[in-house]
Amino acid sequence: MIKPIRDVYNANFSEEKYDAFLKDINGTYNYHVPFKIAETPVFLSKALKEKLIEACDDIMSVINKSNFKELTDGAFFDANTIVPNEDEQSKFIQLDFGICKDEKGDLTPKLIELQGFPSLYYFQELLGRKYIKHFGNVIPEGFSQHLNGMTADDYLVLLKQEIVGDTNPKQVVLLEIEPEKQATAVDFYATAKELGIKVLCITDLKKRGKILYYLDENKSEVEVSKIYNRIIFDELHQRTDLKTEFSFQDEVDVEWIGHPNWFYRISKYTMPLLKGDYVPKSYYLDQLKEIPSDLENYVLKPLYSFAGAGVEIHVTKKMIDGLSNKSNYLMQEKVAYAPVIETMDVPAKCEIRMMMLHNSKTNKTEIVSNLMRLSKGEMVGVKYNKDKTWVGGSTGFFEN
């Protein structure tokens, strides 16, 4: 997106460097990353960075409202999904923006989705480090994955502070469903290595009264004090085969990092509550008094879906009329991604996730890192980008 830097990067790129970069990532934890990692990071100008910060501030002004919980109580599609002992702030917030062009032709972010749930906080740091290691000669001085002068070391210290704190790391678990089978398993291994915590399948979590524990390698009981939850509820609800002693609705003596209820509160359900230059028009489908006549300018999204499943980008009135559960859907104005990343063939579009964290010491939610997705398909996602190059997961380096 910054032409002189992009030209230098592309001119110095080679498949040999890229193969060495991937081999290094896969060898770090002796684990082959199953998703596509892009051939390039993204370089973001100071002007675009400022717009992204402003967009995040606009959205956080709504999330920080005193009545936000009241506004999002309808996000729980079933009372049985509510988890006890909810805290006051979401520990993790992810804001996904498509990079578009405004009426003047300037780059601007538009919100696609948001979630109150952690993603690849440790893998993204690893990814940025490996881009610098293998392509550092063409990554300019004065560009960083992090904002506000935060260094990579500062970032890792902050994550440790918020996930482990003063707790014995053995008593902190990263909870997932069959973690070794998840596409994001590399992040679990990175997290466990950095923090010394246990990566645990929910089926291995045991319960006695209000106490949760697991058995370590010596078959000794280890009481769980904190749960860094990585379970996506859409998947959990589909896995009726799982035999567990623990239910999320149980009253247990643990601290959630972060609390599962924010998965629902900060989600697609939040979109219609947001307004502004950086947010597309969004409506609860069952509350629409009139279906828009220009449906070609809208997408239809299930409020509850896993990894983008069920999103309809070619919406028709017949499709809407055929839905029996309109309360489960969102109508959202289409966002026109701009193909702004010059590659070896056609330009790529990009989406940036601004990764935020609530700092318990400052009591503020801060932008701490980012995740980029590059795409040449109709949508961002693996099935739309098969057999394409210079697409996939990446990270952004911001101009300071």
Rank of each mutant, 00 (worst) to 15 (best):
L273F: 05
R6Q: 15
S66C: 11
K133L: 05
F246H: 00
A309S: 15
N12F: 15
V138I: 12
G136K: 07
I202K: 03
G381H: 01
D19C: 13
S144P: 03
G116Q: 00
T240C: 11
S282R: 07
K361P: 00
D241P: 02
F233S: 07
L22E: 03
K17C: 05
K361M: 00
R353P: 01
Q115P: 02
Y189N: 06
K383N: 01
L242G: 00
G392E: 09
F68E: 08
V346I: 12
N261I: 00
Y298A: 07
H32W: 08
Q94G: 14
M354Q: 13
Y121N: 03
K110I: 08
L285C: 11
F246R: 00
E342R: 09
Q238K: 15
N359W: 02
S375H: 03
Y264S: 00
M379F: 08
A20D: 06
N67Y: 14
D234L: 08
E70Y: 12
K17N: 11
H146S: 11
D58R: 15
K181F: 12
E312V: 13
Q94T: 15
F135Q: 12
N168G: 07
Q238V: 07
G392I: 06
E113M: 08
K243A: 11
K376R: 12
P41Y: 04
S61W: 09
V186Q: 10
V42I: 12
L111Q: 01
D166A: 11
M354W: 12
L114R: 08
Y131M: 03
D153S: 14
V391Y: 01
T316H: 10
K17V: 05
E15M: 14
I112F: 11
L274D: 14
V252Q: 02
A38E: 10
D96W: 03
V164R: 00
M372C: 14
